[in-house]
Amino acid sequence: MSWWLGVVMDTDITWLRNPFELFYKDADFQTSCDDFNGNSTDLNNRPNSGFSYVRSNERSIWFYKFWFSSSKIYGRMHDQNAFNKIKMQPNISTMNVKIRFLDTKYFGGFCHPSKDFNKVRTMHVNCCKGLQNKVNDLKILLDDWRNYMAFP
């Protein structure tokens, strides 16, 4: 069996710096958050599955199968909503799936933007409705980034 590590992300994610050095070495599945409470292992974080880092192994494969089959059980709900429903189910801990949540300080989004351009790695144009609004917000983000990078 081959093993891989991979980033899974929505198209409205902008990479400002390399995020790989901040991923947890011990996790099977890591995801960005709309709200991060300061504890990367706390299942009470409000995740946003638009940016995830996954270690391919038996646990993560089982987790993805369970997650997506659960979204069908819950009336074909959005995968992020299904994740919120299943993240605390006992069979996830029984399978020893190690889930970690990424700090919004480094993995920001428009719901909870990173306040420090010195630390931010990725930005997600979430909490923004409509394609044109997302495009406009991405342009603003990139303009801000260019202005920041222009400072000595």
Rank of each mutant, 00 (worst) to 15 (best):
F36V: 15
F51E: 07
N44P: 03
R100A: 08
T31Y: 08
L141D: 04
W15Q: 11
V120N: 05
V120S: 07
F51T: 12
G130V: 10
F68P: 01
D10Y: 10
R100D: 06
T104D: 14
W62Y: 01
T122P: 12
Y74C: 03
N45Y: 05
G38K: 09
N147G: 03
S52D: 06
F51Y: 05
F107M: 15
M149I: 04
D12Y: 14
R55H: 05
I140E: 04
D28K: 03
D143M: 01
F83M: 05
F29Y: 14
K105M: 13
N44R: 03
A150M: 03
S32Y: 06
D28H: 11
F36S: 13
M77G: 05
S60G: 02
W62S: 04
C127D: 12
P19C: 08
N133D: 14
N96P: 02
R55S: 09
P19H: 05
D103Y: 04
L102P: 06
S71M: 06
S114P: 14
K139T: 09
T14C: 09
N81C: 03
K139F: 00
K85P: 00
F83H: 03
N48E: 08
F63W: 02
N133A: 14
Q30D: 11
Q89M: 02
M123Q: 12
D34I: 15
V125A: 11
I61Y: 00
H78M: 04
R46D: 10
N37W: 01
S40E: 09
F110L: 15
C127Y: 11
V54G: 03
R55G: 02
C111D: 15
T122D: 10
D26R: 04
L22V: 07
D10A: 07
M1H: 14
P47V: 10
K134D: 08
P47E: 12
P152D: 09
F83G: 02
D42Y: 04
S69G: 00
V54S: 04
V125Q: 09
V135L: 10
R46M: 07
M9T: 13
V8I: 14
T94P: 00
L22I: 05
A150I: 03
F107S: 15
K87Q: 03
N96C: 04
N18G: 08
A150F: 01
F101R: 05
L138D: 09
R17L: 10
R46C: 06
R46W: 09
F51M: 08
D144N: 02
L102C: 10
I61P: 00
Q89G: 00
N126L: 08
I13A: 06
N126D: 12
T31W: 06
